[in-house]
Amino acid sequence: MIHTAIVYVLAALAEIAGCFAFWAWLRMGKPVWWLVPGCTSLVLFAYLLTLVDTSQAGRAYAAYGGIYITSALVWLWLAEGVRPDRWDMLGAVLCLLGAAVILLAPHRA
């Protein structure tokens, strides 16, 4: 379980960094070369999700969603200087609970 949590956090960092590179290029006027590390980061994100210990890709992606949402709010705070409000925090907690149910429930094979 610790391995999965680490993979999800690293995947979220890679996905947010990759998406932010595109955001910076298109919305902030950064040079086009920002897409090179952005694309590399998105490839790393996709690879990392293959390391999750589940035989169903959809379940790995669904559980990852809660981690991604929480990580995006951390990014909002640390990288963009906007502190998440109580509604952001409540939403993140609900998403993490949903992710835990998806990941930890005794699914049928």
Rank of each mutant, 00 (worst) to 15 (best):
M28Q: 15
W87C: 03
R86W: 09
L90A: 13
A14G: 02
R108Y: 05
A109G: 13
L13D: 05
K30G: 04
W75C: 06
C39G: 15
F45K: 00
V9N: 03
T4K: 07
A21P: 00
H107W: 13
M89Y: 09
P37E: 02
G66M: 01
V32F: 14
T54K: 11
R86M: 10
A11F: 00
W33V: 10
L48R: 06
A46R: 03
W87Y: 09
G98N: 04
W75Q: 04
I69M: 05
A57E: 08
T70D: 06
A17L: 15
M89F: 12
Y61M: 12
V82E: 10
V74A: 14
V36D: 11
A63I: 00
A46V: 08
V93L: 13
W25L: 08
I67K: 01
A57K: 10
A12M: 01
V82F: 10
W34N: 06
Y64L: 03
M89W: 13
L44I: 14
E15N: 08
L103P: 02
A63K: 00
I67W: 11
R83L: 09
V36Y: 14
V74S: 05
E15Q: 09
G38A: 11
R108G: 10
V93F: 11
T40C: 13
G81H: 01
T70R: 03
P106L: 07
Q56A: 13
W34F: 10
D53P: 00
A24S: 14
A63Y: 00
P31Y: 11
A62C: 11
A21R: 00
L103S: 06
L49A: 05
I67E: 02
L48N: 07
T54W: 11
L104P: 00
G38T: 06
A79Q: 12
T4R: 08
W25P: 05
A72M: 10
A63H: 00
L10V: 08
W33Y: 13
R108F: 08
H3F: 10
L10H: 05
T4P: 02
R86E: 08
T4Y: 04
A109P: 07
T40M: 12
A100H: 06
G58M: 05
A12H: 01
R59L: 14
V74W: 07
A72V: 09
V74N: 05
W75P: 02
L13E: 04
V93T: 08
A14R: 00
L76M: 15
S71W: 07
V9L: 15
T70I: 07
V43F: 09
A46N: 09
F22M: 04
G18S: 06
I2A: 15
A46K: 05
A24Q: 11
Y47Q: 06
L94D: 01
L73T: 09
M28Y: 14
V101W: 12
